[in-house]
């Protein structure tokens, strides 16, 4: 369990190393109702027709994975993920290794909040999705 007073600017979250398969990507898209009419999430050929290199992860799935890094870090602490913003720079492809990094970049003692940079990288260390999260510790 982490307390606000114990965290420091510069502390790292993760890295979280993952491999998302095409089947998992399809399953997510189907579960979220994206399968029909959004072949880029389920089918390589449909994605290529749109100019993509192949199937890509839905943006919400990438957002969920970035959030997982933060919520795993929060764990059982008396805190919550208050805000998260993301920028989608490069399509995320399934069947590739991805790594998610996080750093605590700021603390606000009055608000009991911590600002966290998060991003997802591919095997080439290219940043695919970047974002910031605000975690609030309950007083």
């Amino acid at each position: 369990m982490t307390k606000f007073d114990q965290i420091n600017i510069g502390d790292t979250l993760g890295p979280l190393e993952l491999f998302v398969s095409k089947d998992q990507c399809r399953a997510y898209a189907k579960l979220m109702g994206m399968g029909e009419g959004a072949g880029r999430f389920t089918d390589d050929e449909a994605a290529k027709k749109e100019g993509l290199p192949g199937m890509i992860l839905p943006g919400n799935m990438s957002l969920g994975l970035l959030s997982k890094l933060v919520t795993d870090w929060i764990g059982s602490s008396n805190a919550w993920l208050k805000q998260m913003s993301t920028t989608y720079r490069v399509p995320v492809q399934p069947d590739h290794a991805i790594t998610i990094h996080g750093f605590i970049t700021n603390k606000n003692p009055a608000e009991q909040t911590a600002e966290i940079d998060v991003w997802m990288e591919n095997e080439e260390a290219e940043r695919l999705v970047t974002g910031t999260a605000t975690v609030e510790f309950r007083k």
């Binding site: 190393e17 993952l18 491999f19 998302v20 998992q24 399953a27 290794a97 790594t99 095997e123 260390a125």
Partner: peptide, 13 residues
């Protein structure tokens, strides 16, 4: 320096 990911862990289904 960029380094390869040595042991990517598969997500649990």
């Amino acid at each position: 320096r960029r380094k390869a990911v040595p042991h990517a862990v598969a997500m649990e289904s």
